[in-house]
Computed example of a mutant assay.
Amino acid sequence: MLLEIDNVSKRYPGAERPVLDAVSLALDAGETLALTGESGSGKSTLLHLAGALDHFETGEIRLDGLAYSTLNDAGRAMVRRGPVALVFQQFNLIPSLTVAQNLAFHARLGGRHDPAWVSHLATRLGLDTLLSRYPETLSGGQQQRVAIGRALALRPRLLLADEPTGNLDETTGDAVLALMLDLVAETGAALLLVTHSDRIAASLGRRVHLTNGAIR
């Protein structure tokens, strides 16, 4: 199993109840999983934990058998620069970098830059004519395609996406999602995608639903 989330709980200081309460799920290589739930149900928190962006109190998360509880800050950063990549609702592109530089940025940080692969991604994502442009000159859909390409340039084992079409209109969002699913299938990566949309969730292989921090 690629990703194992085993009985994980998370509570923020001062909160009356845990944001996540003994959550368990598993995801294998090549699988696509939609994580749904109401606002405040813990979806984004769980995604951040899977991406080694935050700490949990109890339970364990493993990626290819690597236990997150054993990692220091440097080890967690290495997880995010190699086997795990993230795409957010806010595109989080670097405004001072061109499209080409943004696409290569995380892969260069992780020592995994492959120019031929980045060129292939740019072509598949319809960005090959935009490589010299800067993010502020792009549409929302174009910016999100850059963000997806930047994540996949790492050739991650696991792609985590938090409402990746939330800032896009339905038509553009559907096109971006279809491209992302095609490229995830091409790479063999697993995809864990947070969404509030039943329609988007239906596009993925399976789904789990969070309610008040627990899978029901």
Rank of each mutant, 00 (worst) to 15 (best):
G149D: 10
T165Y: 08
L125T: 03
A175I: 15
L159N: 14
R150H: 14
G173I: 13
E163D: 12
D174K: 10
L160M: 12
L177T: 10
E170Y: 08
D162W: 01
G149S: 07
V146I: 10
G166P: 06
G173D: 13
L158P: 13
L125V: 02
R157W: 14
S132C: 07
T165E: 03
D162R: 05
L179C: 04
L130F: 02
L154A: 09
S132G: 13
L125A: 04
T171S: 14
G126N: 08
Q142S: 05
Q142P: 07
A151S: 12
I148M: 03
A175P: 06
R150I: 15
T171G: 08
D128M: 08
A147S: 12
R150Y: 14
T129L: 11
T137F: 01
R155F: 11
L154E: 12
G166W: 07
L179S: 06
D174E: 15
L160V: 11
T165C: 06
T172C: 07
E163Q: 09
L138Y: 08
T165I: 08
A153L: 06
E170V: 13
G141I: 05
D169W: 09
Q143M: 11
Q142L: 06
D169Y: 09
L152K: 08
I148K: 04
L158Y: 14
L168Q: 04
R155H: 14
D128W: 05
S132T: 15
Q143F: 00
G173T: 13
G166N: 07
T171W: 11
M180D: 12
T165L: 07
T165G: 06
L160N: 09
L125K: 00
G173A: 11
G126V: 09
L127F: 02
L130I: 03
Q143A: 05
R133E: 13
L138K: 08
G149N: 07
L125I: 03
T123Y: 00
P135H: 02
Q143S: 01
A178S: 10
R145Q: 01
P135W: 00
L160S: 09
Y134T: 05
A153K: 04
Q144R: 03
G173P: 11
Q142G: 05
T123K: 11
L131P: 05
R145Y: 02
L152C: 07
L131E: 11
R124Q: 15
R145T: 00
G126H: 09
T171Y: 10
G149L: 09
M180H: 09
Q143L: 01
L159P: 11
D162A: 05
R150W: 12
Y134K: 08
G140T: 09
D128K: 01
M180S: 10
I148V: 15
E136D: 11
L177W: 04
I148C: 03
R133F: 03
R124I: 02
L130G: 00
G140N: 10
A153W: 01
R157P: 13
G166R: 09
R150G: 14
G140E: 11
L152T: 11
L131W: 02
S139H: 01
G173H: 09
D174H: 12
L138G: 06
R124A: 13
G141N: 04
L159H: 15
A178L: 06
M180V: 12
L158K: 14
T171D: 15
R155I: 13
A153M: 03
G173F: 12
G166D: 10
P135S: 00
A175F: 04
T123E: 12
T123S: 03
A175K: 06
T123P: 00
G140D: 10
D162N: 03
A178R: 14
R133N: 00
E163I: 08
T172M: 06
